[in-house]
């Protein structure tokens, strides 16, 4: 039973990770790519680590895998947040169909939404 659960967890994790990477290729601008990539890869990695834990039990390998999952769960969103903030301040363009950008409005300064040529 636990074996089967472990396999399911591993497969779900791998599937979501690959979908996240596909999102990284398909979406039009940095911020949307980041959304897809961080969400899917975080859950995917946690799934894989949970699968490793379920398949190996309370051994050194399994417990460390759980620790790694916890670590990824905390750090990947923080890294994405820091990078998104940095790029907004740096002036990486938003996609041309972006509805509004209250961050740049509040900071003052020019709009960084891409214009159609």
């Amino acid at each position: 039973m636990i074996e089967v659960l472990g396999w399911i967890s591993l497969c779900v994790g791998v599937g979501f990770t690959v979908l996240g990477c596909l999102g990284l290729v398909r979406f039009p601008d940095l911020y949307n790519r980041m959304q897809a990539a961080t969400k899917c890869v975080t859950l995917g990695t946690c799934g894989i680590m949970l699968g490793v834990f379920l398949r190996s039990g309370f051994t050194s390998l399994g417990v460390k895998a759980l620790l790694c999952a916890l670590f990824v769960l905390i750090t990947v969103p923080v890294a994405a947040h820091a990078l998104a903030r940095g790029s907004l301040i740096f002036g990486v363009r938003l996609w041309k169909h972006t509805e509004r950008d209250e961050f740049t409005d509040d900071r003052g300064g020019e709009s960084i939404i891409e214009v159609d040529k």
């Binding site: 979406f27 949307n32 169909h97 509805e99 950008d101 740049t104």
Partner: peptide
């Protein structure tokens, strides 16, 4: 592309 992004 089913997206309509924005910063709120």
């Amino acid at each position: 592309l089913l997206i309509k992004p924005g910063i709120v």
